[in-house]
Amino acid sequence: MEALSIEGTAKTPSVKFDGHEGVIEIKGRSIPENSIEFYKPLVEWLEEYSSTPMDLTQVNVQLEYFNTSSSKCILDVFKKLEAIHKGKSEVIINWYYEEDDEDMLEAGEDYESIIRVPFKMIEIVE
């Protein structure tokens, strides 16, 4: 299936979903006033991907900022990944946070406690 690639802006993250490599990346800032519109194609892409996923899907989430409107949409993305993980293939979510950014680490832990997919918390040391 075709890869999904979106350039980042001041309020939305860059997105690279590669179905052949099984690598999914969301990076940057996610602070739009209305996040539903932005995340819709991501959720739809995952819906299609879930019919023929790779044996291992690596998910890299590296957000500098995200707002509460995005937090629900990110949960929707993770729920799609949870459904894939429940099947025969494996999913790992790598949650990146900058050194000392306890709020971002905690946000990752919130998701980890809701979503039944293994999370790896990765501190970015500058």
């Binding site: 739009p32 006033e33 209305n34 539903i36 409107s69 629900k72 949409c73 949960l75 809701i114």
Partner: peptide, 10 residues
């Protein structure tokens, strides 16, 4: 986060 849906405005 887990139980309430986003409003139309986001």
């Amino acid at each position: 986060l887990n139980h309430q849906r986003l409003s139309e405005k986001g």
